[in-house]
Amino acid sequence: MTVVTDAWDYLTTASSWTGEDGMLHLMEQQLLLTLTALLLAMAIGLPIALGLGHLGRGGLLAINISNIGRAVPTFALLALLVVADWPGTREFGPYGRAGLATIIALTLFALPPIITSANVAIREVSPSVRQAADGMGMTGGQKFWRVELPLAAALVMSGIRLALVQVWATATIAALVAGPGLGRVITDGFYRTNYGKGIAGAIVVAVVALVLEAFAAFAQRRLDPVPREPSPKRHRGMSATRPMVAEEVDAVGH
């Protein structure tokens, strides 16, 4: 159990947080990576998923893409990208060694939860609501922006929230291929038999993950345009049930 006290010592030493290889810098780097990849994945995934959903299509795409995302190990994909001639391990701006490879892998792994939940969200808008919109003389565009999107927003956002968790996890794994981010503290500790340091890094990564998840859950609740039932029980029991399972399930690809 000395590793636990070692970990504590590492966490409470100022020099492990400061400097180029300090945890603060690595955390900043990993947050930057996470945010960049999440925005990229949203820019790519949302238009496709929402557009297809509006046309009532994309069910098969959504299922297949999340199946593939689950079966391909993050570590294997990262490894392939890093060993390939391009993108390889080259430095990429503030993203550090193997930065480009990491961003590509992170973006790919953020796509399944975003595409799946956004597509399901739009397609699950009840047909009677859609007919009502048609009856009011709304055009396709109006129907999408004023009816489908607000009703689907909660689920779309929960997909983004899951992607966030997923991307943070994947960014940690980048350290296994000597990539950027906080995971490096973990792998450094383990490969140099300094287990205290490895465990300290793991604690920091886990805490940040939980904080991100809590923050995302809070933001999701604040941004939801359609007021929900205050009772969580009811909320869970109703239409949100099926998609919730699908999402939960996507999250465990890291």
Partner: peptide, 11 residues
Amino acid sequence: YTIPSLALLPL
């Protein structure tokens, strides 16, 4: 599930 696998194993 929020905790990344690379962090769960060391813990």
